[in-house]
């Protein structure tokens, strides 16, 4: 899926010849400390950041300017930052976002209500998003990323900064998506999250992938639990 990806910011090498392949239907995690290049890599997968070198293939199609809109129609992005529309209500946020995908109003409303039920925010549909707690806003961003019924879902640190309860709720939803056959790409720096959700993991540090394997193999091969593996491999 990604081959020899390199990204320079001026002279700084944010990604250094990174290669990986993600299989259909799996949950693939990128684990690494802050600044390891995870977010840069996610940005490349959804065409927001252009690689300085190397190429990305999604659904066996090489990414370029021309086919990007077609490919992005089938990708759902759940970003790290809160970029909801603060002037709009919960429901309006979903409807406006659905329009970017050319989903007709009626269908968009149906999907939005379904998703709000899925994240248990249906009673909040007409409330301005500013009035939502941080955890609820996060759930709404999560739901928004699913409005186009994507085949690939990118989750960039989906639970960073959440309280334990909201975190578990998000995990449950991710598990649900996994079982419905979606391909999930997830970044995290929580060991527990990676171990619980991911079929395979890439451990990253300083713009490189150090190793790719299943969580179990990693802890077997390098001894101890995954947290030890991670702390030994990456430099803080």
């Amino acid at each position: 899926m990604g081959k020899n990806l390199t990204k320079y910011y001026k002279n700084f090498k944010a990604l250094d010849s990174v290669s990986f392949e993600i299989k259909e239907g799996e949950c693939f995690g990128f684990l690494g400390p802050n600044g390891a290049g995870k977010t840069t890599l996610m940005g490349m997968i959804y065409g927001f950041i252009f690689p300085s070198e190397g190429e990305i293939k999604i659904f066996d199609i090489k990414l370029n300017d021309k086919n990007l809109p077609q490919i992005k129609k089938r990708i759902g992005v759940i970003p790290q930052d809160n970029n909801l529309d603060p002037d709009l209500s919960v429901l309006e946020n979903l409807i406006v976002y659905a329009r970017y995908f050319d989903i007709p109003k009626k269908e968009a409303t149906r999907r939005a209500m379904e998703l709000l039920k899925f994240i248990k925010l249906e009673e909040w549909s007409n409330i301005n998003v500013r009035k939502l707690s941080g955890g609820m806003q996060r759930k709404l961003i999560f739901a928004r990323g699913l409005i186009n019924d994507p085949d690939i879902i990118i989750l960039d640190e989906p639970t960073t900064g959440l309280d334990p309860r909201s975190r578990r709720q998000i995990w449950d939803k991710i598990e649900f998506l996994k079982h419905s056959g979606k391909t999930l790409i997830l970044t995290t720096h929580y060991m527990e999250e990676a171990e619980k959700l991911c079929d395979r993991l890439a451990i990253m540090d300083k713009g490189k992938i150090l190793v790719i394997d299943t969580p179990k193999n990693l802890s077997d091969k390098f001894g101890g639990n995954l947290e030890h593996v991670y702390l030994n491999m990456t430099e803080g």
């Binding site: 927001f48 809109p69 992005k72 992005v77 930052d81 970029n83 970017y100 186009n148």
Partner: peptide, 14 residues
């Protein structure tokens, strides 16, 4: 501030 551009660019809009 609102990062609306980020949100829009995650969709098919160029």
């Amino acid at each position: 501030y609102q990062k609306t551009f980020d949100a829009v660019l995650a969709t098919p809009i160029s």
